[in-house]
Design a binder for these strands. Structure first.
Lengths: 132, 132
DNA sequence: CGGCATCCCGAGGGATACTG
DNA sequence: CAGTATCCCTCGGGATGCCG
């Protein structure tokens, strides 16, 4: 029968993979990982380049990713301190997927916007424009 | 110089692609799209197979995806009515990435769990176990 | 520079009841 | 079967201030 070595099932709400997916399915997580694709970066560089992210969210995102083993944090005892973040080996198995997803939005924005316009004019009653 | 045809930039917080990414970066969106990979499915089938999703969230997710042109909704006037959801052509350019991301969680759950344990024992002070 | 600690508001989303 | 409509409550996350 060739049973799989893992019994994880993303469709089971009680499976720990569900929580892992929820952590990955986060815009800040995707943006941070995507930014780190080309090598390590420092905290404030990330903060500046990922426009709109607050210090709190960046810190929180970096900590979560570090805890999940996806990024590594290195402190250089300069004055003042320098902190660098880089993807781990584990993250390299995921980063390509992340970058494709993040940039799919750019490549297909026009098609999506057209679909939205069509949908909204076909359903004048509903107001989904406001939905997240 | 070969300037790109689109000036969309996912790192610009005011760019519409940012909102699109936020809609894609959603666990229910990923699970629903992944479920529809192998062909059309009906509402209650999706609801049963994606354990833990409420009727409200399933409806909302399907509507958002329909509005973005990623899924198509077909109503069959049987008695009672039958409604079928299927991925659109636009979605086919994204579905592989989505499935890879969703199932990466299953394949790498053990590694992530190990990293978490290591992190938590190395940082007994912090309590990130509770964080989302 | 690279954070941590608080306050606080609004919305995301669960639970429940009703319908064509 | 496939939804819609409310209520209600938590908690994500922005704003602000402080620190080694």
């Amino acid at each position: 029968m060739n049973t799989p070595l893992f019994a994880y099932n993303i469709y089971d709400s009680r499976c720990p993979t569900r929580d892992l997916l929820a952590r990955l399915a986060d815009k800040w997580v995707l943006l941070v990982m995507d930014k780190l694709e080309n090598g390590p970066m420092r905290f404030n560089t990330l903060r500046r380049e990922i426009m709109g992210i607050t210090q709190k969210m960046l810190t929180q995102t970096l900590r979560k990713l570090e805890r999940d083993g996806l990024i590594e944090r290195t402190v250089f005892q300069t004055m003042p301190v320098t902190v660098e973040y880089r993807l781990t080996a584990l993250a390299t198995t995921l980063i390509e997927t992340v970058t494709v997803l993040a940039h799919w939005a750019e490549s297909n924005m026009d098609a999506v916007a057209a679909a939205q316009t069509a949908y909204d004019s076909a359903n004048p009653s509903l107001n989904l424009q406001s939905l997240p």
